[in-house]
Each structure stands twice: as C-alpha cells, then as structure tokens.
Design a protein around this nucleic acid. Structure first.
Lengths: 239, 239
DNA sequence: TAACTTTACTTGTAAATACAAGTTATATTG
DNA sequence: CAATATAACTTGTATTTACAAGTAAAGTTA
C-alpha cells in the first residue's frame, strides 16, 4: 500500500489485487476468498475499507457474498462483456484483438440528428470522429464509430489508434477516466458499410449499440455507435 | 422509518424514498438532491447510511455524484431498461403492458443442451416451464420463455400469470427475491414460433437474450430466454 | 468593481466500534 | 454414535469520528 505510483484509494488497491488474483486463476470458481477480517489483517486496513473493495468485486460480477459463509468466486463470464463495461478492449481482452482504423481521428461536425442530446458547448465545439473495426482472431466483431467532443483534447487527431485502446490513451494522455455510461441496443438488418466492415450479407441480423460514455471530466462525455456481428460471439453482461 | 411492514434496512428505505421522488418528478433532471448531511438530519441516520442509499441510486443510474458539489439527478432513461434490470415488468413499466400466456406453467424436463450449466440438483428436479408474450400497446415486444427449477415451489403450476409479474409472485408467495443475474445477447434472424409470437417476418432481425437470474434463495436461480422485437423499442441499459 | 483570500459547504476516504443474522465447527448429552 | 447446544466464525447494518479534496459563497483588498 505504498509507492508513488500507487496513489489509488486503499479500497481500490485491494480490489485490483483481488481481481487480478481471480483473473489469473489464483482463486477459481467456487473458491472462497479470505474472510473480511483476514483481508483486514493481511492488508492492514479496516473492515469498512475491505468491504468497499469486495462490494466492487460483487458489482463487477467477480464474486458473490453470502452472509455467514463468505465471498465465493463466480465463474468467469463467457462472451464479450460489452454490456456491463464501457470499453471494447476490456470486454474482449487484449489477446486476439486487432484494431483497424477506417477513418480518423478527424475533426468534423456532429451528425444531425445525433444519437444523444448534445449540450450547446458540445454542439459548438464539434466532434472528433473516428471509425474502427475490432477484429477477434482476425474476424471483424465490432464496427465502432466514436464521437468525442472537440474540447480540450490537444493533438488528438495526430495520435495513432491502430491496435491501441482509446480509453488507455484518454487516461494516460489526457487524464480522462471513463466512469460508466448508458446504452441503447437493437437488432437491425445489415446494410451498406456495415456489410462491408463486418463481412456480413445484406439483411443479416447485427446488433446496433448506441452508447454515451461518461468520464470523470465534468461535462465531458463521448459517444459511440457500435455494430456487432454476433454470429460467433455472444455479448455478455451482468445486471 | 417505522412500521411493521417497513423492515427494510434503513439505507434501503432512504433509497426507495429518494427513488420514488425522482420517478414521480419531485426531483427532476439537473436538480440537486439534498446534501448528505441534510439527508442525515431529515432521516435521522448517519452519513455512511445515507451514502449507501445514494451509492445505490448512482449504481442504478438515478443520480450522479460530484465531490464538492452534490448529487445531481440524471435524465430518466428512455427505452426498455431490460439490460440493467432483471424483470420485464420493471423494464417496461406497468402501464401499457399486457402479458399473454402461451404455455404453462408446466413441469417438464430441462432442454438438453440447456442455455446455462445446471447443477445436479436442478437437473434431477426438472423445471417449471412457461411461455409468455409481453405486449406494449398491444404489440408483441418480448417472447419470454422461463425455466424455474422445480424445487420448493408448491402449487406453482396452479397459479395464474396472465397480466401479472412473475417476480411479484415469487416474492409474495415464496419469499424469493431476485438479486441480479447475467445475460448473453445476440442478434438472430426470426424463424418459427418467434415469427408467430412477435409478429415479424421470417428472417427479420430480433434480439435473443439468454438470462440466468439469481435470487436470495441459496442455489436457486432461474432462467429465461427472451426474444425481442426492437423495431419500435430500443433496449436500454447503464454500465 | 475586479481579483484574491477565506470560509462554509459538499462529497470522498478511512478508521473504530457495536450489534445482528447466518454458517460451520466443536463440545456436550443421551 | 446421533442429536442437540454452544462457540467460533462470517457477512450485514449502523453509528461515530476524523481528515482529504473539491465547489461555491462570502469577505477583504487593491
């Protein structure tokens, strides 16, 4: 719980450690995590702090808690966990994932009408637009159109996004942290660019997600339209 | 905070009150909720307890909190909020909603292979099966196939579900409370019964959800396969 | 009057304590 | 040895206290 780089809140640090342990197989499905009191002792923190970490693990689906018994590790979800998380890199995992830039990032006007209501500031500043395809095992999974408000993102358009996570870049270069969002979703027949980029036939069913992604920067949200070919991969989420 | 029926934890009671206020328009989008300290005073509880209630409102998308500023009411989401909640009645709202029973509830064997892994106990006990159509404004929105483990649900098959919420019945008659779950989702072409029950053409894109719904009863989950016609209604969720 | 500083207020993090409710292990009794 | 009771352990709820960090209002100074 020390070191310059580790300036996360303590509960967050414990959460990250436990999460990594679960992801790395140290704790497997059905295993009990150490008790809250044990975690207090091993981490030198008090129980309310431990509970914050555990509650976040519950919220993210890694564990289930049962009064009197303990915290049980859940099965690792299958499928693409895009419904519960913001980023496609997180949802897919970095292995097997490729990103191809189709267009952008370029500064341009917002689509009109746009998929979500825009503030006057957003409207005035225009957006940074880019189109990407995300491929898993070299097959297109997502056709992803991203719209970022052109507000305080210096030199954004000169950055490279090939095989890189947009969220990582936002966090490291601009201190913008994604904190959640909302989405709408429907099934539509593929047509036009969607057929081309997802390698599906005209009329094939694809998923269409429209997302508004919230960040820690006040009044800075960004937007994403995703088309997803679910032939080989379900989308997954918890609620 | 008193009365026999109100045996919810205090943080839960405050959550319910505030949520109702937001839903009923007492607080509107952009309004600030009372500060944490104000809520402590008006409700006679301490701040950690208030914070639990507010954190749940954040989690459910009703408010956003900003350090130093307060808790701001979010816009009420549009669309069918099925992606973030367990029940279709909650997702749709009770107005304009009709439920038609197509089949069941009947006791029968689980589908094999089944959409989620089953425990030995579940396999052995078989399932209670029913098919429903949920209609909004008299148009079919969901074709809902539900599988409940045939475990400790006395007289379940003699109950009526026409225009009634399954979750309500489980809670009131069996003290089974839904506490969340997981879902998988894809876009598929409609065929067979789906065309018939959702009133769509062969090959039209529909959403296919497979859900495992967790309850407060230990080792008692139930399952649902939903087909959704998203022509007129998006599905909505927060993450 | 504008700019700066201070104060008051708000949410975020954390510790310490206490009691309740549920589960499991151990001890006791028949 | 089986059944029951008790103790130990685990998570759930709640209070109290303290400090940190951010926002907005009020006060002071130039």
């Amino acid at each position: 719980m020390s070191g310059k780089k580790q300036n996360l809140p303590r509960y967050r640090q414990v959460y990250e450690i436990l999460r990594k342990h679960i992801i790395n197989g140290v704790y497997r499905e059905g295993d009990m995590l150490p008790s809250e009191n044990d975690l207090c002792q091993t981490n030198g923190i008090t129980r309310p702090t431990v509970r914050l970490a555990l509650d976040q693990l519950v919220k993210d689906g890694f564990i289930k808690k049962q009064q009197g018994k303990g915290s049980i590790v859940c099965a690792q979800p299958k499928g693409i966990g895009i419904l519960s998380v913001a980023g496609t890199t997180t949802a897919i995992g970095k292995e097997n994932l490729k990103t191809k830039i189709l267009e952008g990032p370029v500064i341009r006007k917002w689509d009109d009408p746009f998929i979500f209501p825009l503030s006057d500031v957003e409207k005035e500043s225009g957006c940074i637009y880019m189109e990407r395809v995300r491929l898993v095992n070299n097959k297109p999974l997502f056709y992803d159109i991203t719209f970022l408000p052109n507000i305080n993102l210096p030199r954004f358009t000169s950055r490279t996004f090939e095989n890189r996570s947009l969220f990582d870049i936002l966090r490291r270069s601009y201190q913008i942290k994604v904190i959640g969002g909302e989405q709408r979703l429907k099934a539509i027949p593929a047509k036009g660019k969607i057929c081309q980029h997802l390698d599906v036939k005209e009329g094939d069913p694809v998923l269409h997600l429209e997302r508004k992604i919230n960040t820690n920067r006040i009044d800075f949200n960004f937007y994403s339209t995703l088309f997803c070919n679910t032939t080989e991969h379900d989308l997954f989420g918890i609620f």
